[in-house]
Amino acid sequence: MSNAAQPRGQKAAPLAEAASMARALDSLNRILLGKADQVRLALCALVARGHLLIEDGPGVGKTILANALARVLGLDYRRIQFTADLLPADITGVSIYDAAGGGFRFHPGPVFAQVVLADEINRATPKAQSALLEAMEESQITADGTTHNLPAPFFVIATQNPRHQIGTFPLPESQLDRFLLRLELGYPQRDAERELLAGEDRREMLARLEPACDPAAVQAAQRAASRLTVSAALLDYLQDLLAATRGGDFGAGLSPRAGRQLLAVARAHAFLAGRLLVLPEDVQAVFAAVAGHRMHAAQGEETASVPALRRLLESVPVP
């Protein structure tokens, strides 16, 4: 989206944070080719202080995205491969008796990182899944009666393969709700793939990648985004949209919490576009990613399809 239509009266301060985010976005787009929308949405989730669920097969760049995001933003990064025998402690960490210190000492698990990639989250048992989800919800870990704060910012990118569900534990609806956004990366376009094939190895590029900002800048961006102006007209539109999800083709509409989250992501989206006010376009741009995993088609267990969501958007006039 171009910045041609920057509104007047922009104040300078939030623009600084937006600029560092714009630089981060540029770097990410150089690594992940032809995935501008998804990359932007992923960053939106981060700026909106939410977590991201990517549903896609292997090899489409999930790990690269997570890793690149962490590097570009100057955050530390851990990856947890979820397997059927993964235990909660493997995620959160364990308390081990320390002979030298004379007591139990907590050894933080891989979840104690600013960006955590939870790969194939549906492979693990619900117990292990919920350990991560609780951490996501509370931003802290309680082990042996002691509370350990997770680092800030804390951003989880979970992936699951929807096409390979045998022997898996699909996330229930209530757990899906913990993820602010759900994305599908999908196959690259032909010219993007050509560039990918012709170009150098992504992992090497990743290793050379310079951070565009630091954790403090990310947190500043998060604060700035949450303060963006939301007008009554936009709230009207948002409410119309929410009302439209609660009837018609869909079995379950968006909850009030989902509405708040939709607004938060829309703010982040506007912020990333360098705007100080939120437009209906922002809501529309993030709507499918926010609403897709929270809504069901009226028939069957299927979550709402992208075309159905598009039709829904087009049924609600912008006031």
């Binding site: 920057q6 509104p7 007047r8 009266g9 102006t229 007008s231 100080l276 006010l277």
Partner: peptide
């Protein structure tokens, strides 16, 4: 068109 749209957006969504 850009000018009009900017003014409209500022007034309607920015409360100006």
């Amino acid at each position: 068109v850009g000018e009009i749209t900017r003014t409209y957006i500022a007034a309607r969504y920015g409360g100006e």
